[in-house]
């Protein structure tokens, strides 16, 4: 593995010897093999690799959407390896924001309600707090004027912007983006990437899976995954992507 990245003692995310094995119809597939990874606060990390290399699996593990077969995972100083389902859900809700390739907005809910959705799962926010955070979030992605529309009334780029607003509304510790521009044309892809750049400049930690080299180059650090292993881990020369 090629690495030029320094391991930090103040890592927001720390994966130690993570393995993930899938069992399907008696066939064993090792999706991830002895992954060791640290992500510092404020870093902008891209993960790339060929199809089926395990990058989406890695992102799922990072997002506590899946559990590793073994290994240790620390997030914001807490060992989250063996948490219960409800505890994982609470951490996802508070610490992690997701941006998916296919947007994954809920079609029955308006833009406003989609963005508010993760906030409604918290018991510490009043209705007024939620409304304030939603409004702020939508303004950041320039979608406040479409708050009462439904996803089916929006273009792909607009939907992804709403998804970003949803991801950042609760000020999570880290944003996990899985091919955020995969379903977008170049113009909208550019808009979305610019938003991510802005978020990063504002101190948000971003971890992005992408096929697109130009999107990957926007990150401050690039990881390559191949056959379930990290084969390269290097800083980019992207001056705009400066770790905070």
């Amino acid at each position: 593995m090629t690495t030029t990245h320094k391991n930090s003692n103040n890592a927001l995310v720390k994966l130690v010897d993570i393995n993930k094995i899938f069992f399907t119809d008696e066939v064993e597939t090792q999706a991830l093999n002895a992954i060791n990874l640290s992500i510092d606060k404020g870093e902008y990390l891209s993960i790339s690799g060929p199809s089926g290399c395990g990058k989406s699996t890695l992102l799922s593990l990072l997002g506590l959407l899946d559990t590793s077969s073994n290994g240790q995972y620390n997030l914001a100083g807490h060992d989250v390896s063996d948490l219960s389902r409800d505890e994982r859900a609470r951490i996802r809700n508070k610490e992690i924001g997701f941006i998916f390739q296919s947007f994954n907005l809920i079609s029955d809910l308006s833009v406003e309600d989609n963005v508010a959705l993760p906030l409604t799962y918290r018991s510490d926010l009043s209705r007024k707090d939620v409304d304030t955070l939603v409004k702020a979030s939508l303004e950041k992605v320039d979608m406040a004027h479409r708050a009462n529309h439904f996803p089916s009334q929006l273009s792909g780029g607009q939907q992804q912007r709403v998804a970003i607003a949803r991801a950042i509304a609760g000020s999570p510790s880290i944003i996990l983006a899985d091919e955020p521009t995969g379903n977008l044309d170049s113009k909208n892809a550019q808009i979305v990437m610019n938003i991510l750049d802005t978020l990063h400049r504002d101190g948000v930690t971003i971890c992005m899976v992408t096929h697109d080299p130009s999107s990957a180059a926007r990150a401050s650090r690039m990881i390559e995954v191949f056959d379930g292993k990290i084969v390269a881990d290097k800083l980019t020369n992207n001056e705009s992507a400066i770790a905070v």
Partner: peptide
Amino acid sequence: GVRRALGATDSM
């Protein structure tokens, strides 16, 4: 899946 990714617990 989306709701759970956003932090909804099983009971929610």
